[in-house]
Simulated assay, not measured.
Amino acid sequence: MPLDERVQFATSLTEKIKYQFGSGYEHFVHQGDYATGSSAGRPGPPWRSDASR
């Protein structure tokens, strides 16, 4: 994923995020962790790619 596209905004953390990549899509699911440091409070890694689409 290009560096300038790594921050995505979602309306809900309970829903999958659909990201267009190449000729298809990747789906990501929040795993409950939050960032620390200068990004504190933002949903953080690890996000899991959801292969079950």
Rank of each mutant, 00 (worst) to 15 (best):
P2G: 07
M1K: 04
P46N: 02
S39L: 12
G41T: 04
V29M: 03
G22Q: 14
F28V: 02
L3V: 13
A51F: 13
Y34W: 14
D4G: 04
Y34C: 08
Q31L: 15
H30F: 09
Y34N: 11
S39W: 12
W47H: 00
D4T: 08
E15P: 01
R42K: 14
D50N: 03
Q31A: 14
Y25E: 05
R42Q: 11
L3K: 05
L13V: 06
S38C: 12
A40Q: 14
S39F: 12
Q31W: 10
F21H: 15
M1S: 13
A51C: 11
Y25A: 04
L3P: 02
G22V: 04
L3A: 14
P45A: 00
H30I: 04
R53P: 01
A10I: 08
V29C: 01
H27Q: 04
E26I: 02
F9E: 02
T11L: 12
E15A: 11
A10N: 06
Q8W: 15
K18E: 14
G41I: 03
D33N: 12
R48F: 09
D50A: 03
G37A: 12
G32Y: 08
I17P: 00
G44W: 00
R6A: 06
A35E: 08
D33S: 13
S23R: 07
V7G: 04
Q20L: 07
F28W: 09
S49P: 02
P43Y: 03
E15R: 12
R48L: 08
K18M: 11
G24D: 05
W47N: 00
H30T: 02
W47P: 00
R42V: 06
I17M: 07
R48A: 07
E15H: 14
S39H: 11
M1A: 13
E26Y: 05
L3D: 13
I17W: 05
W47C: 00
G41W: 15
K18A: 15
E15M: 12
A10C: 07
S23Y: 11
Y25Q: 07
A40Y: 13
L3E: 09
Y19G: 00
S38N: 15
Y34D: 04
A40K: 14
A35W: 07
E15N: 15
D33E: 14
T36W: 12
G24L: 02
M1P: 06
G22Y: 13
I17H: 02
G37T: 04
P46S: 01
T11S: 11
D33T: 07
A51T: 07
P46V: 00
R6C: 09
R48W: 13
P45T: 02
E5Q: 13
L13Q: 06
D4M: 10
Q20A: 04
F21C: 11
T36L: 09
D50G: 03
S12L: 12
D50K: 01
S49E: 08
F21T: 05
A40D: 11
R6K: 15
S52H: 07
A40N: 14
S23W: 14
I17T: 06
Q20M: 06
R6D: 04
S12Q: 11
